[in-house]
Lab assay of single mutants.
Amino acid sequence: MAAGGDHGSPDSYRSPLASRYASPEMCFVFSDRYKFRTWRQLWLWLAEAEQTLGLPITDEQIQEMKSNLENIDFKMAAEEEKRLRHDVMAHVHTFGHCCPKAAGIIHLGATSCYVGDNTDLIILRNALDLLLPKLARVISRLADFAKERASLPTLGFTHFQPAQLTTVGKRCCLWIQDLCMDLQNLKRVRDDLRFRGVKGTTGTQASFLQLFEGDDHKVEQLDKMVTEKAGFKRAFIITGQTYTRKVDIEVLSVLASLGASVHKICTDIRLLANLKEMEEPFEKQQIGSSAMPYKRNPMRSERCCSLARHLMTLVMDPLQTASVQWFERTLDDSANRRICLAEAFLTADTILNTLQNISEGLVVYPKVIERRIRQELPFMATENIIMAMVKAGGSRQDCHEKIRVLSQQAASVVKQEGGDNDLIERIQVDAYFSPIHSQLDHLLDPSSFTGRASQQVQRFLEEEVYPLLKPYESVMKVKAELCL
Rank of each mutant, 00 (worst) to 15 (best):
A411G: 14
A150L: 11
L484Q: 15
A388E: 10
D248N: 01
G394L: 14
L275H: 15
D73C: 02
S359H: 01
L183T: 09
L346M: 15
R404T: 07
E464F: 07
I72S: 04
P366L: 13
Q205C: 00
Q408F: 01
C99L: 11
M389S: 13
V315S: 06
T201N: 10
L124V: 12
M387F: 14
L135F: 14
L183G: 08
L46H: 06
K66D: 01
G116C: 07
S257Q: 09
K391D: 10
A388Q: 06
L42D: 15
A127D: 00
P298Y: 02
A344E: 06
L155D: 08
F145G: 04
L406I: 12
S412W: 00
T382R: 08
D420K: 14
D422E: 04
Q416V: 08
H400N: 09
L406S: 02
V405A: 01
G240V: 07
K218G: 03
S407G: 14
H159M: 01
L423W: 11
E220M: 14
T119C: 07
A308C: 09
R196Q: 11
N384T: 08
S447D: 07
E328H: 02
G197A: 05
F212E: 04
V88E: 01
K264E: 01
E370C: 00
Y365F: 11
R85I: 01
N336V: 04
A348G: 09
R234P: 01
A411D: 12
A410P: 01
A388K: 04
D430I: 13
F449V: 08
G393Y: 03
L211R: 06
T119Y: 00
V226G: 11
L440P: 13
L341K: 15
Q63G: 11
E50D: 09
A335F: 00
V405L: 15
T227F: 13
V457A: 05
N71S: 05
A291V: 06
I249D: 15
A348F: 01
A392E: 15
K479L: 14
T242W: 05
A235R: 06
I176L: 03
E464L: 00
K82Y: 00
K284D: 05
Q416L: 02
L311P: 10
I269S: 04
L165S: 07
V315A: 03
K101Y: 00
A2P: 12
L252T: 15
S323A: 06
P318Q: 04
L179V: 03
S31V: 12
P293W: 03
L272S: 15
M316V: 02
Q286Y: 13
E383F: 03
N185R: 08
G104T: 05
A291L: 07
S323M: 04
H107R: 03
L193K: 10
V115P: 10
G288Y: 13
T450M: 15
I386E: 06
I139D: 00
E328V: 04
M181R: 05
M89T: 01
L128G: 04
L314H: 06
I57H: 12
R459D: 08
D333R: 00
L406W: 03
M76W: 02
T382I: 06
I269D: 07
L128T: 11
W326D: 09
L108S: 08
Q61M: 09
D11P: 02
S447G: 09
S334T: 01
Q61K: 04
I358L: 14
N353Y: 02
L135H: 06
Y432T: 14
I122G: 06
V88K: 02
F232H: 03
L331W: 00
L165G: 11
V262E: 02
Q456E: 02
G156Q: 03
P467A: 04
I265F: 12
F327W: 05
Y432L: 11
S407E: 15
A335H: 00
S67E: 06
W43V: 08
V251R: 09
V115T: 12
D144T: 14
C98D: 10
L271M: 10
Q397C: 14
E277V: 01
F433H: 15
Q161D: 01
V368D: 08
R149K: 05
H400K: 11
N68K: 10
I106M: 03
P435N: 04
K415H: 12
Y13V: 13
R245M: 15
T52S: 05
H86E: 08
V251D: 11
F36D: 13
E80V: 12
M89I: 02
R40K: 14
A22M: 07
R337I: 14
D73S: 01
S448Q: 09
S323D: 15
K246C: 09
R234D: 04
E79F: 14
L272Q: 09
K479A: 14
K134H: 01
Q286N: 12
P16I: 15
L443N: 11
I436F: 06
A110Y: 06
I386L: 11
Q241N: 06
G5M: 14
H442Q: 02
C27W: 13
L346A: 05
C173G: 03
L183D: 03
L314D: 06
G418W: 02
T166K: 10
L211H: 09
M65T: 00
K391N: 07
I72C: 03
K367S: 12
L482N: 08
D192S: 06
P56Q: 12
F345D: 04
D223T: 09
V247M: 05
C173K: 02
I373P: 10
M89G: 04
Q184H: 04
D332P: 01
M65F: 00
E48H: 07
K218P: 10
G288L: 13
E360V: 00
Y34I: 01
I385T: 15
T204D: 03
D178F: 03
E383D: 10
R37D: 15
C172L: 00
L165C: 01
R396T: 10
S151I: 08
P446E: 02
L186K: 05
V92D: 02
D216R: 06
A308H: 13
E64L: 08
I369S: 09
Q397W: 01
I351N: 00
S15A: 15
T166E: 00
L193P: 08
L468M: 15
R396W: 02
L183N: 00
F36P: 14
G169Y: 09
S67I: 09
L46R: 06
T330L: 01
F379W: 07
W43M: 10
F232D: 01
E80W: 11
I424F: 11
I123N: 00
T154Y: 00
V219K: 06
D192G: 11
V324P: 04
A260G: 11
T167A: 03
R14A: 06
F157M: 01
